[in-house]
């Protein structure tokens, strides 16, 4: 514990800028993965334990697309679309068969796919880590803001993620599709009774969640080496985000992800040996005060 350094950081503009931007970038990537988890749970009532594997798949698809096209934009789009389509197929072929089963059965199917995808990645891309490297457009010196350092690539990542969050919020809150999704989250039988193709709806939601995880993997690829099994650690943190934000709440996932990112970045200054502990501590406090999470409604 280094409270002097922590206090010093809070009173220094440069430290505040550097640590806040660091917290935002940690939080934004977490949000992209966590909002997929929360979206799928909110509508389908399924906890997708394979979501980390989708993130991994996104990173690898981006790596290949980048090697083939030398375009980072194409890499991100290919990875997001590819993982989105994979998510649709995964839902239709496997998950749809266990929607009405107990959680253990769903967990088993997801875990099987975590192992299968890890091995598939080993066979296709190899067991060793791979690095995309920074695209030339972002290989720039960091920006100096009030004495703090902010990498241009991270500004791009934060901007893209906020744009995705706004678009997602608009999609859910202001479109017909969003209304149907929200209705299905409340009463899926009624939605079905109104003649809406719920199978298609579920596949779309699952695909959208997978697409977001794939996009997160692709966006992270230039700075995080890709390796089989890389989805596990981010999945755990995503669950923490989902629990803190409230299961099924996109706004909750965003707030919790940013909160967690800031806890990690500022925690590393004041409590460098306890940053993981702070994260779990925050989750415990939220669970004690609001067991349903920050933004979810308490179930009846």
């Amino acid at each position: 514990m280094n409270l002097d350094a922590f206090a010093g950081c809070l009173s220094s503009a440069s430290c505040l800028i550097t640590q806040t931007s660091a917290g935002l970038i940690i939080g934004m990537l977490l949000f992209l993965v966590a909002c997929g988890v929360t979206l799928i749970f909110g509508v389908l009532g399924v906890i997708n334990f394979a979501h980390g594997a989708f993130y991994m798949l996104g990173a690898y698809l981006a790596l290949t697309a980048y090697q083939l096209t030398d375009s980072y934009l194409a890499a991100v789009l290919c990875a997001a679309a590819g993982v989105g389509l994979f998510g649709v197929a995964f839902d239709r072929l496997f998950m749809s068969r266990v929607y009405n089963s107990n959680v253990l059965m769903q967990l088993l199917v997801c875990y099987a796919f975590v192992l299968i995808l890890d091995d598939a990645v080993k066979m296709i891309w190899g067991a060793e880590f791979q690095s995309m490297g920074m695209p030339a457009a972002f290989a720039l010196r960091p920006l100096h803001v009030l004495g703090g350092l902010v990498p241009p690539f991270y500004v791009f990542l934060v901007a893209v993620t906020i744009a995705i969050a706004i678009a997602l919020g608009g999609l859910i809150e202001r479109t017909l599709f969003g209304k149907i999704v929200r209705a299905a989250a409340v009463n899926r039988q009624m939605v079905s009774a109104l003649g809406i193709n719920t199978s298609l709806l579920y596949a779309s939601v699952f695909g959208l969640g997978a697409l977001l995880a794939g996009a997160a993997g692709a966006l992270a690829a230039p700075v995080r080496s890709a390796t089989p099994g890389m989805g596990v650690s981010i999945l755990i943190e995503s669950f923490i985000v989902t629990v803190i934000g409230g299961m099924g709440s996109i706004a909750g996932a965003f707030t919790a992800a940013v909160l967690l990112g800031l806890v990690r970045s500022f925690g590393s200054i004041g409590f460098p040996l306890f940053t993981d502990g702070l994260m779990f501590g925050l989750m415990v406090i939220v669970l004690l005060i609001r067991p349903q999470g920050l933004f979810a409604r308490r179930s009846a």
Binding site: T18, A22, I26, R224, S233, G267, S268, T275
Partner: peptide, 10 residues
């Protein structure tokens, strides 16, 4: 660890 941002900024 997937992310070293907190270590780099520290």
């Amino acid at each position: 660890a997937p992310d070293y941002t907190e270590n780099v900024t520290r």
